[in-house]
Amino acid sequence: MNLDMMAMQAFTGLSIFTILTLMALGLAIVFGLMGVINMAHGELMAMGAYTTYFTSLFFAKFLPGLFGIYFLVGIVLAFFVTFAFGWILERGLIRFLYKRPLDTMLATWGLSLILQQLYRQFINAKEVEVTTVSWLKGAWQVTEGVSLPLSRLFIIGLAVVTAIAVYMFLYRTRWGLRIRAVTQNRPMAGAAGINTERVDAFTFALGCGLAGIAGSSFTMLASTGPTTGQAYIVDTFIVVVFGGVESLLGTIASAFMIGQMQSWFEYSMSGSMARASILLLVIVVLYFRPNGLFATKVRRA
C-alpha cells in the first residue's frame, strides 16, 4: 500500500482513538481514582449521544437559524446531563458499594440493562442519526490522495482539549487537589476538612460527564442505538487496564495504540477478527505487565 493510504489508515485509527480516549478517560477517573467499575459507562455514552441528538432536533425545530452551533451546545448539554445523572447514581447506589467492587460491577450491569431498555422503549429501538452541521461537512484535502473529514478532525481536537482540561483540572485546581487527596489518603483528607463524600460524588459525576462528551462526539462518527454503549464498554475497559489504571497519560497512550491496532488489523483481516486479536493481545500483555503497560512501579499498602 502506498503512503497516502497509510496516512488515511492512520487517520482512521485516530478517530477510533478519540472515542476510546474520551470514554476511557472517564472510566479511568472513576476506576483508577475510586476503584469503582462502572459497567453502565457505555450507556452513559449513549445518553450523551442521545442528548446531542435531541439538541439537534430542538435546534432544527425552534432555532433553525442557529443550527450551526447546535453541536457545541449539544456537547455542553451532554456533559451536564450525564454529570447530573452520575451524581444521582453515586448518591443513590454506588456509595453503598464502595467496599464491594465486584458487586458494583453487577449492580451497574443491571443499571445498564435498564437504561438500554429505556432507550429502546422511549427513544427509538432503531438507530438514530444526527445531521452534521454544515461547517463540519467538508474534508481537508491535504494532498491529492489524502483527504481528512472535518468532522473527524473536530472530534480529535475536542478529545485533545478535553484531555488537557481534565489534566489541568486534576492537577491545577482546588477540586482536583481534593480529589487526589481523597484518593491517596481518605481519613487524612477527611481530617483536613475535606468533605470526602462530596468529593466521591463529584469525581464519579465527572467521569460520567466525560462519557457524555464521548457520546456527543460519537454522533459525528456513527448512528446511535440502544446497544451502542455495550459495544464499546469492553474495549474501554481494555484500554484502561492496558494503560495502567492510575495514569491518565497511560490511558491516552493505550487508547492511541489500541485505536491504531484496530485500524491496521482491519486492513489485513475482517473487523471482528481484528477486535478478537486485539483483545487477546491485551490479555497476553497483561500477563507480562499485570499493572498495565504504563504503570509506574509503586509500593502499595
Binding site: I37, L102, V282, I283, L286
Partner: peptide
C-alpha cells in the same frame, strides 16, 4: 479482583466474536 473479571469478560467477547 476486578482485573480478572475484566479479563474473563474480554474472553467472552473474543469467543463470541470468533
Amino acid at each position: 479482583g476486578v482485573y480478572f473479571s475484566i479479563v474473563t469478560l474480554a474472553l467472552s467477547a473474543i469467543m463470541a466474536i470468533v
